[in-house]
Computed example of a mutant assay.
Amino acid sequence: MSAHRFDLDLTQPAQGGVYFVGQDDLDRLAKTARRDALHVCRTDLGGCTDKQELLRRLAVSLTLPASFGFNWDALADALRDLGWLPAWGYVLLFEHADTLRRAAPEDFTTLLGVLDDAATFAADHDIPWFAFLALPDEAFDGS
């Protein structure tokens, strides 16, 4: 991907996790995931500046059940069990993640933890599960 230009095998649960990529990488990742029959979910975080807006956008992009509780615990539970999106693996793509990272760093850090927990849970259950968060190129050069 952009930072180091490596490729993952999205069919391998052991390689699952949370990765930072460049915005231009998302289309390639989506194409690869669809080729491998993985469910792709895209969430645009452009203009997203807080937890409530993040959870609202995720509820829409993930088509979360009406019972979704709009808190971190509910998100963690939902991401561990994506049963309403039947697939053998999942790829979550977050466009413009830098907006949330800059506006609400604590919420961004919490999101990363929730995503990482879901990826670990999925790997433990032999399910491919990846989250890719797009950041601007300057985020990768130590600035």
Rank of each mutant, 00 (worst) to 15 (best):
A122M: 14
L111N: 03
L112W: 00
L93Q: 09
L82T: 02
S2R: 12
L135K: 01
V40H: 08
S143V: 08
K31G: 06
T99N: 14
R5C: 05
V114N: 01
R42Y: 10
Y90S: 04
A87G: 11
D50H: 14
W72N: 07
A37I: 01
F20V: 05
D36F: 05
L75Y: 03
R34A: 12
L93F: 09
L64S: 04
V91M: 10
F68Y: 15
T43I: 15
P128Q: 03
R34M: 13
H39I: 03
T43S: 14
L135I: 03
Q52W: 05
L92D: 03
E53Y: 02
L62Q: 08
L45S: 05
T32S: 15
F108V: 02
D36M: 04
Y90L: 12
G142N: 00
T109A: 13
A139G: 01
A97S: 15
A33Q: 09
W88G: 07
D107T: 04
A139P: 00
T11Q: 11
G46Y: 14
G47P: 02
K51D: 13
F140R: 00
F140P: 00
T120A: 13
R56I: 11
D7G: 08
L111R: 01
L133Y: 04
G17Y: 07
G113W: 04
F70L: 10
A3L: 13
V18R: 02
R56F: 15
S2K: 11
P105Q: 04
G47F: 07
T11P: 01
V40I: 11
T63H: 14
D126S: 10
D44K: 14
V18C: 06
L112A: 06
S67A: 15
L112N: 08
A122R: 06
W84I: 05
F121W: 14
L55N: 07
P65E: 11
D117Q: 09
R5V: 08
